[in-house]
Amino acid sequence: MNGSVYERELASILSGDPGSVERYSRRVAQDTQQAVTGLIQRPFYVVRAAGSLGADLVAVRDDYTLIIEVKSSASRRLSFSEASYKRQEQAERLVERCSRAGLFLTYAFRLKNAREDPWRLFSLGSVRPGRMALLKALIPEVEQTRSGNYHLVWEHGVPLSVVIDYVNHGTV
């Protein structure tokens, strides 16, 4: 499957589509299922961004704004140095743009064929103090190799359901 399938999947979950939220909630830990289904009542407004040089999704609600780059892989590790360093350059460009707006970049890593919650989130960049800084503290930073290249390790990310629980209830 190509990446746009997963972009659409995440967009439909965050935008509170009842069918997508119900399907996703069956895959998450029982203690976060209620928070996930809460997206039906309190969804994000999600826009899929056009073009390959910007972020994939922008999710906005009255209290949070997420700039999201979606990545998917059958492997539990995704290196940004692959594909002629284009992922690395894109990340640096997006972080700079987000930082100027007082936001951080969120990577949503979808593990293909995962049995449990397939989505893990990572953050990149700095953010001003406030509500967004508290959210960023919950989401682990994108890791770097010794040579400075970014990489995602699926197990090191925070499950999407935990982030949804936080934004809906303010607790972890």
Rank of each mutant, 00 (worst) to 15 (best):
F44E: 08
A49G: 12
A101H: 08
V70A: 01
F122A: 02
Y107L: 02
R100E: 14
E92V: 08
R120V: 00
S81E: 13
Q88N: 09
D117Q: 12
I68D: 06
V142T: 10
L105H: 00
L103S: 02
L121V: 05
L57C: 06
Q144D: 05
Q88C: 00
A55K: 06
P118K: 11
Y85S: 04
R120K: 12
R128H: 08
R115A: 09
F104K: 00
R131H: 06
Y45W: 13
V47F: 07
R48T: 08
Y107Q: 03
E116N: 15
L53S: 10
S73H: 08
V70Q: 03
R120G: 00
T106D: 01
P118H: 11
L134K: 13
K86M: 05
R100Q: 14
I139H: 08
P43Y: 03
V46W: 10
P140V: 11
L57Y: 08
R115P: 05
G130F: 07
G102I: 04
L121K: 00
A50Q: 13
R131S: 06
F122M: 01
V95Q: 07
K136N: 09
L78F: 15
L105Q: 00
K86F: 04
R61S: 15
E96Q: 15
A133M: 07
D63P: 11
G125V: 05
P140G: 12
R76Y: 08
I67E: 01
K136W: 01
S79Y: 15
S84G: 11
G51I: 05
D62A: 13
L53N: 11
S73I: 03
S73D: 12
S126P: 07
S84R: 15
E116C: 10
E89P: 05
P129K: 02
A133R: 13
K71W: 10
L111C: 09
L105W: 00
L135M: 02
S126V: 01
E69T: 01
V47H: 05
A83G: 03
A133G: 12
L111W: 12
K71L: 10
T65Q: 05
Y107M: 02
A49M: 14
S126L: 12
R61G: 15
L121Y: 00
L66T: 02
R131C: 08
Y85A: 07
M132F: 04
D62L: 09
A49R: 09
T65L: 04
A101C: 07
R128E: 11
L94C: 07
R100I: 14
V127R: 02
R48M: 05
V47L: 10
E69I: 06
R61T: 15
I67W: 03
I67K: 02
L103H: 05
G125R: 02
R115E: 14
R87I: 00
E69N: 04
